[in-house]
Simulated assay, not measured.
Amino acid sequence: MKKGYFITGTDTNVGKTWTTIALMRYFKKQGQSVVGMKPVASGCLLTNRILKNEDALLIQENASLPVDYELINPYAYEAPVSPHIAGADNPVQLDKIVGSFNRLKKLADIVLVEGAGGWLSPINATEDVSDLAKALNLPVIIVVAIKLGCINQAKLTDRAVRWSNLSCVGWIATCTDPDLLNREETILAVKAALDAPLLGVLPYSARADFDELSANISGDLNKN
């Protein structure tokens, strides 16, 4: 049976894309084929007359097999603002994303779907990231950027995911602040606050080494 996971974060710029690609490398090492999606993306650049997102291109590059860009990123917006603003003239329709996901899950063992912003970030005038996750009906992995304020953000996100009646299979810590004091204590505090297991701690890196990052994923997701 095909598996998939929805990757959400405690905020914008918490390391969701690096985590998604690290997970892709992790599943490849387990001998499974994997593809990824970033269904909604702002701040895209025009490439060969097509708007493309840098993060979505990285996800495309790390797939186990060639996948058309439009399946990975059905909604690409040029303006670097919230999708509900950037996409006012071409709003996100969940049915289109679900259709792309259904095509992708026929191609690989694992499909990883990266959300936009945080769990309640709007993606159109009436729906947010949580509605997208519910439409896909995927178990959730939370990315927590380890920084000042992250304990509150992690607890709020975890509770919001559970209120959405979706399964949270775990969380991954991303060390985005190289100068943070008491990093280990902060990770332990988040670990104690969440019921979901800690799946890995991704160390700070100025440039991504995705094989190294994937080696820091210690949870066994194949059991989920």
Rank of each mutant, 00 (worst) to 15 (best):
K3N: 07
F6W: 07
I7K: 12
G9K: 05
T10H: 10
D11P: 09
V14M: 08
G15W: 05
K16W: 08
W18I: 08
T19M: 03
T19D: 03
L23M: 15
M24E: 14
K28S: 11
K29A: 13
G31N: 00
G31C: 02
Q32K: 03
S33W: 11
V35A: 00
V35H: 01
G36W: 05
P39Y: 04
P39W: 04
N48K: 04
N48P: 03
R49S: 13
R49F: 09
L58Q: 15
N62M: 11
A63M: 11
A63H: 11
V67A: 12
Y69V: 07
E70T: 02
L71T: 02
N73R: 15
Y75R: 06
P80R: 15
V81T: 15
V81D: 13
A86C: 07
G87D: 09
A88D: 06
D89P: 02
D89L: 06
N90A: 11
P91V: 15
P91Q: 15
L94I: 15
I97Y: 11
G99P: 03
F101W: 13
K106M: 09
D109Q: 10
D109A: 08
V111P: 06
V111S: 13
V111R: 12
V113Y: 09
V113P: 07
A116W: 07
A116Y: 11
A116H: 12
A116N: 14
A116R: 12
G117K: 02
G117I: 00
G118L: 06
G118P: 05
G118M: 07
W119I: 07
S121K: 09
S121Y: 10
P122F: 01
I123D: 02
E127S: 02
V129K: 03
V129T: 03
K134W: 05
L138T: 12
L138V: 12
P139E: 05
V140D: 13
V140T: 13
I141Y: 04
V144Q: 08
K147L: 02
K147Y: 05
K155V: 10
R159V: 09
R162T: 07
W163H: 13
W163V: 05
N165I: 05
L166I: 04
S167I: 02
C168H: 01
C168Q: 04
G170V: 14
A173S: 13
A173Y: 09
D179S: 00
L181R: 11
L181I: 11
N182F: 13
E185V: 07
I187S: 07
V190E: 06
A192H: 04
A193C: 01
D195K: 04
L198P: 00
L199N: 12
L199R: 12
G200S: 09
V201E: 03
V201N: 04
L202P: 13
S205L: 13
A206Y: 09
R207C: 06
A208N: 00
D209S: 08
A215V: 10
A215C: 11
I217Q: 01
D220T: 00
D220S: 01
N222F: 12
K223Q: 15
N224P: 03
N224L: 05
